[in-house]
């Protein structure tokens, strides 16, 4: 498989930048944005295989962002990131087409595994 194209979306700047760095050490180059609006902008101009999307972001419903992304790019696979206790929203997301969800704090190897599974499914 070609290099996986990944977009990380989370309002926690420190979390997303560290995650990006750790993925890079594993040979996965990811773009990272902090808002749902920025994610939509990126999706309009870039092709991604996998989007890792935080469900709870300031001023925006993560599931709404997911719906808009899927409308723009129906083939992109979305992995939702959720806080403990917010799994219900992620389950709704899965029913609406998300590939899977992970509860924060996530295990990097688990995330990479899911991303590879998701990218495999999208190609």
């Amino acid at each position: 498989m070609d290099q996986m194209r990944v977009l990380l979306v989370d309002d926690e700047e420190e979390l997303v930048s560290t995650l990006k760095e750790r993925l890079a050490l594993r040979g996965i180059e990811a773009d990272a944005v902090l808002t749902g609006a920025d994610a939509l902008d990126r999706v309009q101009t870039n092709e991604y295989d996998v989007i890792v999307l935080d469900v709870k972001m300031p001023g925006v419903d993560g599931l709404e962002v997911m719906r808009k992304i899927r409308k723009l790019r129906p083939r992109v696979q979305i992995i939702l990131l959720t806080g403990r206790g917010s799994e219900k929203e992620s389950e709704i997301g899965i029913r609406e087409g998300a590939f899977d969800y992970l509860v924060k704090p996530t295990d990097i190897e688990e995330l990479v595994k899911k991303m590879k599974e998701a990218a495999g499914g999208s190609s």
Binding site: E12, L15, T18, G83
Partner: peptide, 12 residues
């Protein structure tokens, strides 16, 4: 939880 997640990634 968010802070723990950040610490987890940094220590990772």
């Amino acid at each position: 939880n968010n802070v723990v997640a950040i610490i987890g990634e940094l220590s990772g």
